[in-house]
Design a protein around this nucleic acid. Structure first.
Length: 231
DNA sequence: AATGCTGTCAACCGCTTACCG
DNA sequence: GCGGTAAGCGGTTGACAGCAT
């Protein structure tokens, strides 16, 4: 006895989404809101499974998404949160308005991991690499003081990786690391960014002015911004 | 110009968790 | 409390773009 499939695979599209599919999904959600993902594809006239629709909406079409490069501040927050939370991408994403778990996960795997390794830090444990790995890292170009491990000053390198083992200690740990209040209390993720996190770039400013504008901007976005489109 | 390699990231897969009757 | 279903999550894959040779 296996799991029942999430959808009728024989009659569903897979792979990259087309512009028309995006438009259908956006139009449906704008009209009816995010409801039952399982029934949404049929209602919206999409030959996709609900999971696929949900992913497409959450990771690409949501109007409150912030596109573009991660800032140094975001990098730091991700590193600090990962040190505390581990691979809990959705929790990390919840602290970075406009960023998705998938985006952060990809960014971690492609950029931050390498950045930490270059600093001689094990991206899994956030502890300094030992032996040959450390030597190799030492030869790497980035060895500035500000590039030193994101390990709290009161933790020794030997203990930093395991110094916050208790879940009950998350809040204290958040305050403990880097001196920033990460406020890890549980709250509904993906909320609209607070006024204090107003966009700074023109594009971001445009992206927060209206949902319609953003969706239209995304659907107009050239191939470079969305290389998976096969329009 | 052609080919191979590498980096990026959207999308899929399968497992876990939450919810409901 | 139990079982079924839907949603959520994290790991992985694969297509594409750009760079190096």
């Amino acid at each position: 006895m296996g799991r029942s499939p999430c959808c009728e695979k024989a009659h569903t599209n897979k792979g990259a989404w087309t512009r028309e599919e995006d438009q259908r999904l956006v139009a449906y959600i704008k009209a009816h809101g995010e409801g039952c993902w399982r029934s949404l594809p049929k209602a919206a006239g999409l030959m996709r499974c609900g999971k696929s629709c949900r992913l497409r909406w959450i990771n690409y079409l949501r109007p409150d998404l912030k596109r573009g490069n991660f800032t140094e501040e975001e990098d730091d927050v991700i590193i600090k949160l990962h040190q505390i939370l581990g691979n809990k991408w959705s929790l990390i994403a919840g602290r970075l308005p406009g960023r998705t778990d998938n985006e952060i996960k990809n960014y971690w795997n492609t950029h931050i991991k390498r950045k930490l390794l270059a600093r001689g830090i094990d991206p899994k444990t956030h502890r300094p690499l030992s032996g040959a790995a450390a030597a190799a890292a030492a030869a790497a170009p980035s060895s500035r003081p500000e590039d030193q491990p994101a390990v709290c000053s009161s933790c020794s390198p030997e203990t930093s990786g395991a110094c916050h083992s208790s879940d009950d200690d998350d809040r204290a740990s958040a305050l403990h690391h880097g001196g920033i209040d990460l406020n890890l209390s549980i709250s509904p993720p993906r909320e609209t960014p607070p006024p204090s996190s107003l966009p700074t770039t023109t594009q971001e400013a445009e992206a927060t002015t209206s949902s319609t504008t953003v969706v239209e901007w995304k659907l107009r976005t050239p191939l470079k911004e969305n290389k998976m489109y096969h329009y």
